[in-house]
Nucleic acid binder design. Structure first.
Lengths: 240, 240
DNA sequence: CGGCCCCTTGAGCTGGTTCAAGAGATGTGG
DNA sequence: CCACATCTCTTGAACCAGCTCAAGGGGCCG
């Protein structure tokens, strides 16, 4: 897996072979960061565009009282952050959750790429819009789902996304997220996340332990979650 | 106010006079819709781009159990929906909340505009990114703020956004949102929204009644909300 | 004038939090 | 390679923010 990001664009057939080649050539060698390392912080000025090639990261925001809200999980093939090149300041931070390999495209080079290649603009825009759908899905979860549904929904989403990029087995996947991290993403306390996971385990639906997610009853999990994957926009039009 | 959308872009100095003229010329005469009218529904295929010129609308999603989650409020100058031209299907619906004047740019014309005018692409992308920041702020609210903070935060945001487009006085603004609508946006029951508004009124901080928002103690409201307007990205670079 | 929303308030309930404590895992330095 | 420190997971008990259910009043529109 040389470049998970381009694989993703290609996998969705949303970038031409030509554009993919140009984009890939623009990616400098990846750097490896340890877990819990901030790639960029709220308030920072424009920097390079990050592409997560391996490992996990997240967007998050710290509140005044020290609590953290995780806004999105970034897995191989996700990017962070387009914003930089258009807005003048980050309104949230991005950090690794595990050891992660990250490719960083300098902003100047990125701008040149976008000016020269409308196909790449389109591809990036598409990714952006899909990410936005994921944000909306999270709002729905936090506003209208109870804890067990919320946990189930996140597990469905992460599982599908992992399967899409080929890092999930039939019913198992490595998911190196602690219950604290899950709580910060779901707006729940880690204690309650623990109880909910225990309940799902007892029910024989899924299990998360030792960093491995095992879904033994996918239909029931999706039912509890009220999961509909339309927001992940997997079927789409070929780039114009 | 001929075209609130272009006024907004101009107000933020993010579009050239030339691009503004071209964009304005592309807007067909506005249509007026009654309140509670769906402009587009989840699952719909690409249609025209909507620009809200007058009145209020919202993005929302209905769940299986009939509950509704409002994802974003659209006021004059906001657009809905770029998604259409890139994704193949809406993952949420958009409806008017009040009588609203809406301009609809046909998609073919929009695509031509975007192809011919990189400046307009940039401007749209910027708006898109700002909207995304607003989504993230909502996630933070729902995940980490209690009801009174959440209500206060939404009021701060709406007030600032209204002031930015010139439809708010010094400490008053028309805000034609029912407590039911607010509840659907905030993930609270209308009953509880009522109690929280009552509390804020008793505290002498703000009042919402008869469709009019009056903020008598802005600093205290912002303090309760933990409000920081950085995510609205008002200071920004002039379009390249 | 009548019907339908919307707002308001009360009373009791409950899902999720808080606080606490111990056991298991993981990593680090000597 | 072991010892110790730190982080994570787990479970229990009490509490409380926000929900549910219910009922009455007010305003707007047909």
């Amino acid at each position: 897996m040389a470049n998970a990001f381009i694989d993703k664009l290609r996998g969705f057939q949303f970038i031409s072979a030509d554009d993919a080649r140009v984009l890939e050539a623009a990616c400098p060698p990846a750097r490896t960061f340890p877990a819990r390392h901030d790639l960029i912080r709220e308030g920072d000025k424009p920097g390079p565009l990050f592409l997560v090639l391996d490992g996990w990261a997240c967007r998050y925001k710290l509140l005044h009282d020290g609590t953290r809200q995780i806004l999105a999980f970034l897995m191989p093939g996700d990017f962070c952050d387009m914003h930089m090149s258009i807005l003048n300041e980050m309104d949230h931070s991005i950090a690794t959750l595990t050891t992660a390999r990250v490719s960083m495209i300098p902003r100047v080079q990125l701008d040149a790429l976008l000016d020269a290649r409308p196909g790449i603009v389109r591809a990036f825009w598409w990714v952006q819009l899909v990410d936005e759908g994921t944000l909306r899905a999270q709002i729905v979860s936090m506003g209208r789902r109870r804890s067990i549904e919320r946990v189930a929904h996140l597990m469905c989403e992460l599982y599908i996304r992992m399967r899409n990029i080929g890092i999930a087995d039939h019913d198992r996947a490595d998911l190196p997220l602690t219950q604290i991290v899950l709580g910060d993403a779901l707006g729940l306390t880690p204690v309650h996340v623990n109880r909910v996971l225990g309940r799902l385990r007892t029910l024989g639906i899924m299990e998360l332990s030792g960093g491995v997610l095992t879904i033994s009853d996918p239909p029931r999990l999706a039912l509890i979650a009220g999961f509909d994957d339309n927001y992940l926009h997997r079927r789409l039009r070929i780039a114009a």
